[in-house]
Simulated assay, not measured.
Amino acid sequence: MKPFRIAVFASGSGSNFQALADAVQAGKLDVRIELLVCDKPRAKVVERAEQAGVNVFAFKPKDYAAREAYEADILRKLEEHEIDLIVLAGYMRIITPVLVEPWYGRMINIHPSLLPSFPGLHAVRQALDHGVKVTGVTVHYVDGGMDTGPVIAQRAVSIELDDTEETLMERIHRIEHELLPHVVQRISQDKVRLTGNTTRFEEGRGEDHESK
């Protein structure tokens, strides 16, 4: 039986890539990480992928005339590797319709806030600046907007009085590293349904969660 193949897109250190790879290694995630796509060839995540034996497509955006041009190359790589799901995990590039339209419903992103609060860059800093008491982590489908796609799953993280951006981000990362492999596993098992702007996510303990 053909394994469920994922492509991870990342731009930086790749801690969420590592969390996925570790979950696969531990037998907690029954997928194959087939491809890493990275827009920074010297990023730490490239080294992580090579150590894990994962194929890498690393490119420099400045070598292309437009975003659409390198996304056309990415599309060819996804087809070549028979990818079933794209996982954006710290990928810091705007996604155009060239990629979004053919992959809608098969592309997810992880974001360090409880969307729709604090979309975009510096979500943890935004939460601290606004003085909210709770933030969190969201995994959602990608629809081409700025963190606007249908929510699949969320987990809350309380903000402490003495939190800095670094201490809060550390706790958020711990939740990300648990939630992302869990969501990918449920998608690979066909336990996540997307209908219009509504998702139904089966946790695996008998309860379903519906998000809009």
Rank of each mutant, 00 (worst) to 15 (best):
Thr199Asn: 06
Val184Lys: 09
Leu179Phe: 07
Leu29Arg: 09
Arg205Trp: 14
Pro181Glu: 00
Ser13Lys: 07
Glu202Pro: 13
Leu180Tyr: 13
Leu180Arg: 05
Phe17Cys: 09
Glu202Val: 15
Gln51Cys: 03
His209Glu: 08
Thr195Ser: 13
Pro181Lys: 06
Gln189Pro: 03
Lys60Gly: 03
Ala127Gly: 12
Ile6Arg: 09
Ala7Glu: 02
Val87Phe: 05
Gln185Asp: 01
Val142Cys: 01
Leu35Ala: 13
Gly149Met: 11
Ser113Trp: 10
Gln25Ile: 05
Lys60Met: 06
Ile110Ala: 05
Ile86Val: 15
Phe9Glu: 07
Thr138Met: 08
Lys62Leu: 02
Val139Leu: 02
Met92Lys: 12
Val100Ala: 07
Tyr91Leu: 04
Phe59Lys: 00
Arg106Tyr: 15
Arg174Trp: 04
Lys77Arg: 11
Ala23Gln: 00
Asn16Pro: 06
Thr195His: 10
Gly204Ile: 03
Asn109Gly: 07
Glu202Asn: 15
Ile187Pro: 14
Thr167Glu: 03
Ser117His: 11
Leu179Glu: 06
Glu178Gly: 07
Leu78Met: 13
Tyr70Ser: 01
Ala52Thr: 10
Val8Thr: 11
Val87Glu: 12
Val183Asp: 02
Lys40His: 14
Arg42Asp: 13
Val132Cys: 02
Glu71Leu: 11
Val124Glu: 05
Val54Thr: 05
Ile74Phe: 00
Ser117Trp: 08
Asp39His: 01
Leu29Val: 06
Phe4Tyr: 15
Asp22Met: 01
Gln25Ala: 13
Pro150Arg: 07
His209Met: 08
Lys62Gly: 07
Thr138Leu: 04
Thr195Cys: 10
Leu115Tyr: 08
Val183Cys: 08
Asp63Thr: 07
Met146His: 12
Phe59Asp: 02
Ile108Arg: 15
Glu207Trp: 15
Ile110Val: 11
Leu78Lys: 13
Leu85Met: 01
Phe118Ile: 07
Asp84Arg: 13
Thr198Gly: 00
Thr164Ser: 11
Gly204Leu: 14
Tyr91Trp: 14
Gly149Asn: 04
Glu210Met: 04
Ile152Phe: 14
Leu29Phe: 09
Val87His: 08
Val151Asp: 03
Glu71Val: 09
Ile95Phe: 03
Glu101Ala: 12
